[in-house]
C-alpha cells in the first residue's frame, strides 16, 4: 500500500482550492535499470475526487506526470468543514483513497 496522500483544501469565496500531493513512483516504462533492462511502466492512470460524497473530478494521467504527482483543482460551492476525498488507481490496479476536510 502506498503512502497516504497529502491533501490541503482551503475555502475562499464560495470555492475551495484543493492541492494534493500523492506518493507514487510514476515509472515511465522508458527508463533502463543498471542491467540495461527496461523498467516496466508503473503510473497512476485515473484520479477522481468527490466533495461530500458527490463526484466532482475525474482525470486520466499518462506516465509523463512527474514522480510523486501534484494536483491542484478548485471545487465550486464548497465551504469550510466539507469533506473532500481523492482516489487514484494505477496501471497495476493498486488504488488509494484519502479524505480531508476543507479549512
Amino acid at each position: 500500500m502506498a503512502d497516504p496522500m497529502r491533501i490541503r483544501a482551503q475555502a475562499s469565496g464560495g470555492k475551495a482550492t484543493v492541492r494534493v500531493l500523492m506518493s507514487h513512483e510514476m515509472e515511465t516504462g522508458q527508463r533502463r535499470d543498471s542491467a540495461g533492462k527496461l523498467v516496466p511502466a508503473w503510473f497512476i492512470q485515473e484520479v477522481s475526487a468527490s466533495h461530500n460524497g458527490k463526484p466532482v473530478l475525474t482525470a486520466e494521467w499518462g506516465p509523463a506526470v512527474a514522480k510523486n504527482p501534484f494536483l491542484q483543482f478548485t471545487i465550486k460551492g464548497a465551504k469550510a468543514g466539507d469533506k473532500v476525498s481523492i482516489t487514484w488507481k494505477d496501471n497495476k490496479g493498486d488504488t488509494r483513497t484519502d479524505e480531508a476536510t476543507i479549512s
Binding site: K54, P55, V56, E60, W61, G62, P63, V65, F70
Partner: peptide, 25 residues
C-alpha cells in the same frame, strides 16, 4: 515526449476549468 499526452481532465459543473500538475519532459 515519447508519448505526447500528459494528463486529461474531465470538466464538469462542479469544478473550475483550472487544473495544475507537474510533468516530466
Amino acid at each position: 515526449n515519447p508519448n505526447v499526452l500528459v494528463a486529461m481532465f474531465k470538466v464538469n459543473d462542479a469544478v473550475d476549468a483550472n487544473f495544475m500538475t507537474r510533468a516530466k519532459m
